[in-house]
Design a protein around this nucleic acid. Sequence first.
RNA 1: UCCCCGUUAGCUCAGCGGCAGAGCACUCGGCUGUUAACUGAGGUGUCGGUGGUUCGAAUCCACCACGGGGAGCCA
Length: 463
Amino acid sequence: MIEPGEYIRDIFTKSPGTAVTARGWVKTRRDSKGVTFVQLSDGSCFQDLQIVIDAGTIPENVLREATTGACLAVSGDLVESPGAGQAVELKAKEMTVYGGADPATYPLQKKGHTMEFLREIAHLRPRSNTFGAVFRVRNALSFAVHQFFQERGFLYLHAPLITTSDAEGAGAMFGVSTLDMMNLPRTDAGAVDFGKDFFGKRAHLTVSGQLEAEIFALAFSNVYTFGPTFRAENSNTPRHLAEFWMIEPEMAFCDLDGDRKLAEEFLKYIIAYVLDNCAADLEFFNKRIDNTVLSTLEHVAASDFEHVTYTEAVDILLKAGRDWEFPVFWGCDLQSEHERYLTEETFKKPVVVTDYPKEIKAFYMRLNDDGKTVRAMDVLAPRIGEIIGGSQREERYDVLLEKIRTQGLPEEAYWWYLELRKYGSAPHAGFGLGLERMLMYLTGMKNIRDVIPFPRTPGYAEF
RNA sequence: UCCCCGUUAGCUCAGCGGCAGAGCACUCGGCUGUUAACUGAGGUGUCGGUGGUUCGAAUCCACCACGGGGAGCCA
């Protein structure tokens, strides 16, 4: 095992003259007559360690195996590098090859590959520059999420992944069953008898931890969930996954203004964290993936988000003098083209839109005094559209019950959700952030399948 | 799910009715403290699949599969 202080990122901080051992995988190799250069990476940082092997130092049969893709341990002295690309390099004295890699068949080349090709070799793509950077940023982002909420005293809640609650309604759900599909038990009426299933009733993978988070917010005040979420929607876009990670804070004693301010503070915090801790990776994204990433992130971290109500947003869109593919009117749902116009053209930064018509938002969102709008918010970001969706929740028992009834929802399924309003109810609010959407924003990566280790999409669940 | 576009060497692509091509990778060699090194030579194919049109199909048509972009649904 590589111990703390021994990663390649640590080796770069040591003084020339220090004896070190580096372990990792060969990115590339260049041969000269008297000297061989090997670029070695252990994934700990963007920069590879340059290994310099003077002819004759390492036995021929060992050195021959140290080709692109091979796994090595190299011991020697850290020295100042006369070359331009790095301050220090490792002058090899000893080398062990753990595993070779036949150059004729190893698929990762020195030159660039398409993201589509790399996706087909998901077992090797983490060794590439791009995916090394993606997954280091993903790691840093996840840490920043916990640090942000923990610093503020939020309780980390593990919402269940399997649910028998029929109440979430955030999208199509994957069924969870151990029934023999070739021989399904039937009720007298001929329907599948889920009473004979593992849980004694129909079970699904969760589409959101929000309702469970509300339960905990009404006991621990400030809580958050951070875990995988599943949607069985047949969505084939660069922004959707069937399995993705979501962060859902829920705060008691909080209204929509508090919710919106927390969302802004949260986004700025995690952006600043990644800017501070993944500088080399972000520079790479800025250079090779999207040359607007750094300036956008720095801008967003430093500036105040715009805030408009839905009604104001509709006014802006009506005055835009555009031929919208989807007509704009008060009561319409904002389409991609509208969201993009607001965030990319009108304001050129993240925009929070609040107070949507109740008809186009979920039943649990708190009704405003006008009786027409609800305390909902969407945070829209340039390039990727909606990144956060949230709301103040309806905490009034009678109003919530009425909403459930008028929307024709199964009242019995919500018995515990209603009881939260019956016993010690409190104003509360929360929001949801898709981790992968945020990563796309941070890295400039164009396809959500390339910011999660092993993407699951309709028709695809390899690796 | 809908609308467009694509699928040819390991990779990226050209060829668009008449001999299957290039660059890179790879192998062997030259040169060189190199940085996606440079350089000479060499091998590389079920032209996504199945049917059809045609004297002849990588090329035209149909269907299917897969990939990309856009839309819807959403995070």
